[in-house]
Design a protein around this nucleic acid. Structure first.
Lengths: 235, 235
DNA sequence: TTGCATTTTATGTAGCTACATATTATGAAG
DNA sequence: CTTCATAATATGTAGCTACATAAAATGCAA
């Protein structure tokens, strides 16, 4: 069954992935060099290269110059998540988006925030608490600290009309982000904000951003009970 | 601004990203065509193409044939997570890994599992519960259903010695995965397993895999209190 | 004006070459 | 046998060409 027509790098990738998945190549095994694969499959080395890069990106193989390509011995599940602006996320569900500013004040950063940013000492920042609503019910409660050194202009913005989330996304780019998930048991105050029972298990998304080494903002976003974060279907 | 030496596609990407971040191009704006960018920056179109693909991958721009390239009007945070085999994850923290099989039995899948797999009707599968330990303390409790149709051989494996997690990873590849996070309040039984207080908020990772359309396994992994999932630092 | 076929055009992809770079492998010197 | 310089080699990257493809723009006919 000669393959006279062109084969795309995706085809090559799928063939190689198939051989790894059906254990023609096992974890730890070395694959042939790109050139030989290209000859065997009837394509150019650059096509194999592109396919290989994709397999590296998805965590299936590891490559080293001169060392060749090996099937990763420690398989990992690699997942990608897209986290949109809360308003967009709510509207995507078909619900009506609402927003309420809860509090806004300058304050010295507590230890937890100092640690998140990796600061040497506490400093004065803008502390903003706000509630995002879906069909008038609490959707996300966000507790945010914004660096005045890098985002002083935000003090001139009316955060009761536009969420800090949205303003920052459109005005303050970042180059580094720390993103983490964890579960939190709602205390009295939080339960009241989220209109749920004290003790409820809530999924929390914590995001801290910098532009180069300069802190921008850190948010703790507490989601409503039952909220799930789902990975994108990978290519 | 002559640029005598070669510039890598990463350089081009960084220049373009910089122009987007400093708002030379704003959300919704159209960028010049690749060829013009290539001419302006003194590189080949293929280099711009590679840079652009990276910006597409990170969610910063959207491209359409003939339509050109636009800065995405709805910025998203894109994060990647690597989820390793539990043993490896525990050992990476420096702790000693331990494993206990809690239960193993054939059973008809409950509705929740039928739904996760998208089955038409319940079917008999292997139901396995197991506890992963870090320094002898509960680390992850996994509740797993394994399709006998696709993984019948696993019944011959001694799952008290080797975790189903590990066996499946090394013997049963998958081509599709559904992965999600949520928070769960520990009930009496779960609290006992995890040696924590009933009502504690626990982070849950739910994974369901298929090979093509054929169900392989679905797991609900309940992590110990305080567990966080952290995104990889992106390139 | 509307509807439909055609052309134009920007991105997408494959192939080739040339050279860069990181390692491993080799071999000479002590 | 060890150490260190050197050669060999597999992957990584940039540039070029040629052609494929999707979608917008255009033009023609009714």
């Amino acid at each position: 069954m000669t393959a006279p027509q062109r084969r795309s790098w995706q085809d090559i990738r799928d063939i190689l992935r198939g051989q790894i998945l059906d254990r023609s190549y096992r974890p730890g095994d070395k694959l042939p060099r790109d050139e030989d694969i290209a000859a065997a499959l009837g394509c150019a080395r650059s096509t194999v290269q592109r396919a290989m890069q994709d397999l590296v990106d998805t965590g299936l193989v590891a490559r080293k110059r001169k060392g060749g390509t090996r099937v990763r011995p420690d398989p990992v599940t690699r997942a990608t998540f897209d986290i949109a602006v809360t308003r967009v996320e709510v509207e995507a569900t078909g619900a009506t988006y609402g927003y309420e500013l809860v509090s806004q004040a300058r304050a010295r950063t507590p230890e937890a925030v100092v640690a998140r940013f990796g600061l040497k000492a506490p400093e004065e920042m803008l502390h903003v608490q706000a509630l995002h609503l879906a069909d008038a019910a609490p959707y996300v409660f966000e507790d945010r600290w914004i660096s005045l050194a890098s985002c002083g202009e935000i003090e001139a913005v009316d955060l009761s009309r536009q969420s800090a989330n949205e303003w920052l996304v459109h005005h303050k780019p970042y180059s580094r982000i720390d993103l983490r998930f964890y579960a939190l048991q709602a205390d009295e105050t939080l339960a009241r904000q989220m209109q749920t029972a004290p003790g409820a298990a809530l999924l929390v998304l914590e995001r801290t951003t910098w532009l180069e080494a300069v802190p921008i903002t850190t948010v703790r976003s507490v989601t409503r009970p039952g909220h799930q974060i789902v990975a994108q279907n990978e290519a």
